[in-house]
Amino acid sequence: MTNPESLLEITWTDPVTGRKGYVVIDTLVRGLASGGLRLREGCSLAEVRGLAQGMTRKEALVYDPADRYLPLGGGKGGIDIDPADPQATEVLHRFLAAVLPVVREQWNTGEDFGLRQETIDKVAADLGLPSTVEAVFATLDDAPAARERLATAFADIVGGISLGDLVGGYGVAQAALVAAERQGIEAGGATAVVQGFGSIGGAAARYLAEAGVTVVAVADRDGLIRDDRGLDVEALLAARDGLGVIARDALPDGVELGDRDAWLEVPCDLLVPAAMSYVIGPDDVDRVRARIVVEGANMPTLPEAEAALVARGIPVVPDFLANVMTNAWWWWVVFGDVAPTAESSYDKIRTVMRRLVTEVGEAADASGRTLRECALELTARNSAALRERFGVTG
């Protein structure tokens, strides 16, 4: 079934396993769209459609006429398979081969939930693609230099982790810190719970801890890890595997283990869902014991649940604001708005995130509307400016 509001929707069936894969192009700007590819058991066309719409918002949200970066439209991909499935990479290869014309011409993609950048890069190379953002490189006068900038940035290792795997979580941490500051919560006395310990969750935990926040619990696919005295985030990062699962035999004495969904009930100032979509539903709201929810994942909170949280006085920093920096950083590097270094990247992320969260927060305070409503309004204004400047399809 095609959604009349999407420009393009592809449903693919793997001829070997019967697994489904999806591509949705929500909007095009200058003929281009941007958005990652996820691997998740149960991934659906409706999910990918919502993610593509979120990418349209993310691209517009960070628009700044002073930047070289010219925002793109929104697109997304997903495959209904567990990333731990032994056949996952083979299915990914067949999926990308099937949708290769769209990747070459319109859809600029990269890692997302369940998929690491080095994996998709290897598959793309096997298919003859130098990168998964060739459609953008084709529009640049300095494409060789842009390729070099991106390669240099990904080669920058910060505390044992590639800069490309840190920038998104760094942005989430900055969003959380500014939101906490606006609520009168000082970082040095704050606590946080992070659900998901992949690139977004792991980096968010690292940089919250670095700012002085006590990370009291993290949850991965194997369960909850909790220590109310504060977890050693760097030790947890060193003990995780490529799917963000922490080796339990590396944990120190005194750490409490719990069920994988027990993270909702841990008291904290900052609750950061940073893994799967749809993890906070209406039935979960009364379990939440946080002062602020910061959406590190895409679509982690169902609309009815968000409304109930807000009614309880718990603000929700929406996903397309809180986790926008992975996408923005790629293009800032490619277009040359930041140097391919951690210092330059973090300075830009910190500055832009503070501006965005402050602007949205002040609008919410003045109007009595939610952070999501005010962020959507900012996105709409930027979209109008983009439409006037470039034209937008979709």
Results as ranks from 00 to 15, higher is better:
Glu5Leu: 15
Thr13Val: 15
Gly18Gln: 11
Ala33Phe: 12
Leu37Asn: 02
Leu37Ala: 03
Gly42Met: 09
Leu45Arg: 12
Ala46Pro: 06
Ala46Arg: 15
Gln53His: 10
Arg57Pro: 01
Lys58Gly: 02
Lys58Ser: 07
Ala66Arg: 15
Asp67His: 14
Leu70Pro: 00
Lys76Asp: 00
Gln87Thr: 15
His93Gly: 03
Arg94His: 05
Leu96Asn: 05
Gln117Ala: 09
Gln117Cys: 07
Gln117Pro: 00
Glu118Asp: 07
Lys122Cys: 02
Val136Glu: 08
Ala138Tyr: 08
Ala138Gly: 05
Leu140Cys: 05
Asp141Gly: 12
Ala143His: 06
Val158Gln: 13
Val158Met: 13
Val158Cys: 11
Gly164Glu: 01
Val167Phe: 14
Val167Ser: 03
Tyr170Trp: 08
Gly171Cys: 08
Val172His: 07
Ala179Pro: 11
Glu181Asn: 10
Glu181Thr: 13
Arg182Thr: 02
Gln183Ala: 14
Ile185Lys: 05
Ala187His: 05
Phe197Ile: 06
Gly198Leu: 06
Gly201Phe: 07
Ala204Asp: 01
Ala205Ser: 04
Ala209Met: 02
Val215Trp: 09
Val218Tyr: 00
Gly223Ala: 09
Ile225Met: 00
Asp227Gln: 12
Gly230His: 06
Leu237Val: 13
Gly244Asn: 06
Ala247Cys: 04
Ala250Ser: 14
Pro252Gly: 11
Pro252Cys: 09
Asp253Thr: 14
Asp253Leu: 15
Glu256Asp: 10
Gly258Gln: 08
Leu264Pro: 02
Val266Trp: 04
Pro273Gln: 11
Ile280Ser: 05
Asp283Asn: 11
Ala290Glu: 03
Val294His: 07
Asn298Glu: 06
Met299Ser: 07
Pro300Glu: 04
Thr301Lys: 15
Thr301Ile: 15
Thr301Leu: 07
Leu302Trp: 10
Pro315Cys: 10
Phe335Trp: 10
Asp347Pro: 01
Val352Asn: 13
Val352Arg: 15
Arg355Val: 01
Thr370Arg: 09
Leu371His: 07
Leu371Glu: 01
Leu371Met: 13
Arg372Trp: 05
Glu373Tyr: 13
Leu376Phe: 09
Arg389Tyr: 03
Phe390Gln: 09
Gly391Asp: 06
Val392Phe: 14
Gly394Glu: 02
